[in-house]
Design a protein around this nucleic acid. Structure first.
Length: 228
DNA sequence: GCGACAG
DNA sequence: ATCTTGTCGC
């Protein structure tokens, strides 16, 4: 699983072209171990006013949701945030955190978009293609597209997210009274499976456990430990 | 030209 | 993403 991210030269055109090429490698069919044994959540946070990128990876038992391991990788930030090019900024740290886990997960839940992206390569899809792991994007807001219909305020309800006539993901009511999550397949996961898999790992919070725990670790919000 | 815009 | 107290609502 190699393929470094190109250096940031300010040339967004080259990066967009790179995304289009990688998007062709995305596979939207279920292709993961069944039943799932482990699942991992990934998220990124920043330190030193953004100078340091901090990625967190939390490995859980897919059945009990017990935490099996958690890691934090810190790398110097190489690129600024540019809408649509987020993966180039966060991927290096995410891959570093993945490499620190004792074993690769059967499925990865990444904070951000899967294929619900202008060129169908959000950070979760990029992460999946580069690592080769099955992945799903779990974002807290929409980047592109619009919901097809109103969403019921019932736990587990979901409605298609479309860009033109193409379905690129779902709006998922993971918790009543809360804004819906934007769920989209990243790699090796079929469109219909994404919301079902995310709900499988969701307990009493808006975010599914893998991503929720990675969120707290990446944002130094970890109750208990102080650092990695 | 005018907004919109994951984290 | 990050800076931050109190406050509204289930």
């Amino acid at each position: 699983m190699n393929s470094p991210v190109p250096d940031w030269t300010g040339d967004t055109g080259a990066l967009r072209a790179e995304q289009e090429a990688l998007a062709r490698q995305v596979r939207l069919r279920d292709d993961f171990r069944k039943p799932l044994r482990t699942v991992a959540g990934f998220d990124v946070g920043f330190e030193d006013d953004g100078a340091t990128t901090r990625a967190a990876a939390v490995l859980l038992d897919a059945d009990s949701l017990a935490v099996l391991d958690q890691q934090v990788a810190r790398l110097p930030t190489r690129m600024p945030y540019v809408p649509g090019l987020l993966s180039f900024r966060e991927l290096p740290a995410l891959l570093a955190a993945l490499a620190l886990l004792p074993t690769a997960p059967d499925l990865a839940l990444v904070d951000g978009q899967g294929i619900a992206h202008p060129r169908r390569l959000g950070v979760a899809a990029h992460f999946g293609v580069i690592s080769g792991l099955p992945s799903i994007g779990v974002a807290k807001s929409v980047l592109v597209g619009a919901p097809r219909m109103a969403l019921h305020d019932m736990r587990g309800a979901f409605t298609p997210l479309r860009d033109d006539r193409e379905q690129i993901g779902w709006l998922l009511r993971s918790k009543p009274g809360c804004l819906p999550l934007v769920v989209s397949p990243g790699h090796r996961v079929a469109m219909p499976s994404a919301p079902e898999l995310v709900m499988r790992f969701t307990t009493r919070y808006r975010l599914p456990e893998p991503t929720r725990l990675a969120d707290r670790l990446a944002s130094r919000r970890d109750p208990g430990a102080g650092d990695d």
